[in-house]
């Protein structure tokens, strides 16, 4: 599913060039459940942005489902994000003025799905994450755990194969965090690839594979029993 070779990413910060990624190789297959673990500043977020086609690498190749994406244009990347990737953020990033239903339906707007279908699909996904009775609530009427479940439902809209989560439990209490992780396990059992970026060892240990990043390189890549 994902094949990256010698990926590098450097930023120009005034006079200084910061090398966030110094050459990363990684293969992730379909249905894998991977945790990317590392301290802050290790480059794990940058890696996730590149994996999610939000950003492009300075050097190296990235094949997503057999397609080279490292040199694509903005709109081509947007299309991949729209159809192949679902994002979950630490701070949920829900539209404050829209209901849970509309938030989940958002990616489908950019797919050109018709209004009826969008809402049907969004309702189905909200039911699936256990929020059937919260569809018309605005984000400020929901708890943190509920908001993140709305975000998971949004990531699932349009049925992408790859789910990327950046510190998904960072703003949640333990119980709500557990619910989110449980949802991830369900998704993996359905054959989706889930990549979770975290610095929380407990979360990481529930994944099938842990990739440790430090100073922009892969320090350790271990598979563990499910």
């Amino acid at each position: 599913m994902i094949e990256i070779r010698d990926i590098k990413k450097s930023y120009q910060m005034g006079e200084v060039t910061v090398e966030a990624l110094r050459g990363i190789d990684l293969n992730i297959g379909s249905g894998e459940y991977v945790a990317i673990l590392g301290p802050s500043g290790s480059g794990k977020s940058t890696l996730m942005q590149i994996l999610g086609c939000l950003d492009t690498p300075t050097a190296g190749t990235y094949q997503l489902s057999g397609r080279e994406v490292s040199g694509l244009k903005r709109n081509e990347l947007a299309e991949i994000r729209n159809k192949q990737v679902g994002f979950i953020f630490q701070s949920f990033n829900l539209l404050a003025h829209a209901s849970a239903l509309e938030n989940v339906a958002l990616p489908l707007i950019y797919r050109g799905t018709s209004g009826r279908q969008r809402l049907q699909e969004a309702a189905r996904l909200l039911e699936r994450v256990g929020l059937a009775d919260r569809m018309d609530h605005k984000p400020n009427e929901l708890s943190g755990g509920q908001r993140q479940r709305v975000a998971v439902a949004r990531a699932l809209a349009g049925d992408p194969d790859l789910i990327l989560a950046d510190e998904p439990t960072g703003n949640l209490d333990t119980h709500s965090g557990d619910e989110i992780v449980a949802l991830f396990e369900e998704l993996v059992s359905e054959g989706k690839s889930v990549i979770v970026v975290t610095h929380d060892l407990e979360i990481a240990q529930r994944a099938h594979r842990v990739v440790r990043i430090r100073d922009g390189v892969v320090e350790e890549d271990t598979r563990q029993a499910a």
Binding site: G52, N75, N82
Partner: peptide
């Protein structure tokens, strides 16, 4: 800005 970023992340093209 943040909302626009989110819209882009979930697949909005530039023209959207």
């Amino acid at each position: 800005t943040r909302e626009i970023g989110l819209r882009m992340a979930v697949g909005a093209r530039d023209w959207h």
